[in-house]
Design a protein around this nucleic acid. Structure first.
Lengths: 334, 334
DNA sequence: GAGCGGGATTTTAGCGTTAAAGTAAAGAGT
DNA sequence: ACTCTTTACTTTAACGCTAAAATCCCGCTC
């Protein structure tokens, strides 16, 4: 490894002069500068970032900590990256597998020290566990969990989104709408809130809420969504609509319906949540609640920047608005 | 920030004793140990990783550098993560947007110093640019590019995969198969090699190779795939099969075919490449070349571990085998 | 030609950690 | 009783960088 000291010796100057040339801090006479640059080139010197980080107490790096690199998080990450880079910082992703232990470890003082700021997509931690996190490091939480007031937090209008999607299907004739994955779950506000929206749409339309139509799924995967809906079909429970808790789950529903010979949207209308890239391409086009990834990314990064810039005012709790994107899987669609 | 020195003062011992307790290196008498631990707890001390990294010359962190966090890379990342973690290291993802400048920057001495090893999914750099990278840092390259011999490299059997998929469609009756995105491109061995496989399948079957069926796409997205195939349909060029260069592009083709009222696989057979999670759920099930993400991940991580363990033998160039997963989008399917 | 101002460069002093060498005290061996 | 270990802990010296203070050198003034 080539150090500044090696360059300094080669150029016949002090280490500080090399530092000043490399970082363009204090002015350096042109002949000296040229000699230093020549030495830098000759030796292939590049600054040791670890040493700089230690000395500077900054890393110019932001971490986005996600449960998995898949699907929704992959798409959001790609929105966040340019916003972080625009401020001259680096973005790195870390993965927690959604487990509370991993998330807690990611929020440990030790790990936080590696970054100037952290965006954490909370999947496993509850309010109490988060409350135990004591740090001055800028943090913005994302995700559909209950979090302590002192954290900046961006989440989606889950209830409203679910209500919109369900009401839309009711408006277009569905009367028995499966809430696929919309189970009550103290830990999981995502499913609970979407369940409430599903329920409210029914009540608003004067329809009965039948608990048999709330179908639990084992994981938020397409496979689990398909299996769960196939079970519903096999059970003989009649239905004419499906609101899936996420688009990934909705894709599983698409598969189940196709396998079972049920036509979308003629026999069964279908809507999802997240409006992933793929959703507009899966025939006949997946009606979905759009959570505006880009807006969420901008809001979250904005809050983080504010904190990193030294803002100490009260934390904000943003609920990102949603809108329904109607496509061919429901009867209002094109 | 609480430093070891603060803990040492609180516990009435030297800094080294704290270090020895915290890292369980040299043995420390139980009463002393307890006093140190109490001080650690009281002050909420956690080690400063930046300082440790500088001192140790190691970071116990591996970076996976990808063009984007989306789709294929998201899925591969999720396979790689547990393999890295199993060795007690951390995995972080960085993004290059696929641009040569970003990739080169990621391979700069400075950035490499932050990691004990790097997995780089090459998308933009060519052989010459890679050849300019001079570093002893363990690196494994992934992706369908030509790379200098001295780098460990894992790529897919692109030609064979494309040939398998195309031959399969020919075997089941297709005679005019669009090679969607399978253009020759000096820089992009992925498309070129898959094009060659598409071509070979034709020749093996004694069919003419008609260049009009090689359809370029602007980007490897579903939108570009759909638009390109819609153009083909509008042009009136007759076809009865589509081999899409990736599953993401194939999804665009699915949309284009559905919009145009063409039935899959009755009117048009369709096959893709990558076998993404979604591919088995998009009706009628996407026939796809499976590149065995998990195997690729294991191979790449294995090569990286070997290098990090000090192996200095010649680099390996692994071509990961592929197999065809037949689903409903082709006529051999279920 | 002593004194001064100011730009160029160097010296000093860490950032927080840990490998290695050093010391001090208690116990073992002869 | 004196070495010789062993155990427990401390001191020293970096890792590679840079903010701040100190020094040097030159032309300029009066």
């Amino acid at each position: 490894m080539v150090r500044m000291a090696d360059v300094a010796r080669e150029a016949g100057v002090s280490v500080m002069t090399v530092s000043n040339v490399v970082n363009e801090r204090l002015p350096v006479n042109e002949p000296t500068r040229a000699r230093v640059m020549a030495a830098v080139e000759a030796l292939g010197y590049e600054v040791n970032l670890t040493a700089r980080h230690l000395r500077a107490g900054r890393t110019d790096t932001v971490a986005f900590i996600v449960p998995s690199f898949h699907d929704y998080f992959g798409e959001v990450s790609d929105k966040i990256a340019p916003l972080i880079e625009a401020e001259g910082r680096h973005l790195v992703l870390e993965r927690t597998s959604g487990s509370p232990e991993h998330e807690m470890a990611a929020l440990s003082v030790a790990r936080l020290q590696l970054y100037d700021g952290v965006l954490l997509s909370v999947a496993g931690l509850d309010r109490d566990q988060l409350d135990r996190v004591r740090t001055a490091k800028p943090i913005v939480l994302l995700g559909e969990r209950d979090v302590p007031d002192r954290f900046n937090h961006v989440r989606l209008a889950n209830e409203e989104g679910a209500r919109l999607a369900t009401a839309h299907m009711i408006e277009h004739g569905s009367r028995r709408i499966v809430g696929l994955g919309c189970t009550f779950d103290t830990a999981h506000m995502m499913t609970s809130d979407r369940r409430i929206g599903w329920e409210r749409a029914h009540r608003d339309a004067g329809l009965d809420v039948d608990a048999r139509y709330v179908v639990p799924i084992s994981t938020f995967t397409s496979a689990a969504g398909r299996d769960a809906l196939l079970d519903v079909i096999a059970s003989g429970l009649p239905f004419d609509g499906v609101f899936a808790v996420t688009d990934v789950v909705a894709l599983g529903a698409v598969a189940a319906l196709a396998e079972s010979g049920l036509r979308v949207p003629t026999d069964v209308q279908l809507a999802g949540f997240d409006n992933l890239d793929m959703s507009s391409f899966v025939p006949p086009g997946l009606t979905s609640v759009d959570a505006n990834h880009e807006g969420v990314a901008e809001t979250a990064v904005g809050l983080l920047h504010r904190q990193m810039a030294g803002w100490t005012g009260p934390a904000e709790h943003v609920v990102a608005p949603v809108r329904l994107v109607v496509r061919g899987s429901t009867r209002g669609g094109a």
